[in-house]
């Protein structure tokens, strides 16, 4: 943990238009680590990820990425610097083919890179090759989620923000998405993942951050957060089925 953090937030306050939603968030992500962000509905998890990528309103505080405060940069600029964000819910171009969606993923890249980068994500997710000319809107929910992750992976980000990637997926598909995230992190990518499948997510992550009512409530190694009685009570339930024992 001696290396410079991949991302460092200092007293970040952000929200929408004139309403601040998240307050005074300070956070440091170790390079190549996986951090799970958990919290109740409306706790401000999505708002935090949007603030890091720049698609909502910044109020105050610092967002330092690779030694630079990026809070004034447009999302496209943050993407060019290596931050990628896959929002919650379906986020692709539904009436375009998988091929076109991936080409749009390459939008910020030089033309000569399109082919090799797309080939790389296709080897990572071979399913996409079989759906190459299908409209994205015709894929299953899990396939669309994989497509969306692939759409940003073509930029080879160094910081990956994922908002509920396992939402609405079958347990099998969830396990695949978790495995993919772990695989990506193994290549040195830092990941910050919002999860409602707290149990499954904590099993594959290094660190956990808990948010409540727009503030950071707890932070620590995934294992210790998982064993915290308050967290067990609030998110894990007494009798949760331990199906996704990775």
């Amino acid at each position: 943990m001696s290396a410079r953090p991949a991302l460092e937030l200092t007293a970040l306050t952000a929200g929408y238009r004139d309403v601040p939603i998240i307050h005074d968030i300070s956070l440091a992500l170790a390079p190549g680590s996986i951090t799970t962000l958990i919290g109740g509905n409306g706790a401000g998890k999505s708002t935090l990820l949007r603030a890091i990528y720049g698609t909502n309103r910044w109020f105050s505080g610092q967002i330092v990425y690779r030694g630079e405060d990026i809070h004034a940069l447009e999302p496209s600029e943050r993407l060019r610097r290596g931050i990628a964000f896959v929002p919650q819910g379906r986020c692709n171009f539904p009436s375009m083919s998988v091929a076109e969606n991936l080409k749009l993923g390459c939008y910020t890249l030089a033309a000569r890179l399109h082919r090799p980068r797309i080939d790389r994500v296709l080897s990572l997710f071979p399913m996409l090759r079989t759906k190459w000319s299908s409209a994205a809107g015709n894929l299953s929910g899990g396939e669309q989620q994989v497509l969306e992750i692939a759409m940003v992976l073509v930029t080879e980000p160094s910081l990956l923000l994922l908002d509920e990637p396992s939402l609405g997926l079958s347990p099998k598909m969830q396990a695949e998405v978790f495995a993919a995230v772990r695989d990506i992190a193994a290549h040195g990518v830092t990941a910050l993942v919002v999860e409602q499948n707290v149990h499954g997510a904590l099993l594959v992550s290094d660190t956990a951050v808990v948010m409540e009512l727009g503030r950071k409530f707890m932070e620590g190694p995934a294992a210790s957060v998982r064993d915290d009685p308050r967290i067990r009570e609030a998110y894990l339930g007494g009798n949760i089925k331990e199906t996704i024992e990775a």
Binding site: V86, P94, V152
Partner: peptide, 11 residues
């Protein structure tokens, strides 16, 4: 088709 996705890919 999707403004949010457009931002996601850096448009």
């Amino acid at each position: 088709q999707n403004r949010e996705a457009a931002l996601m890919v850096g448009l």
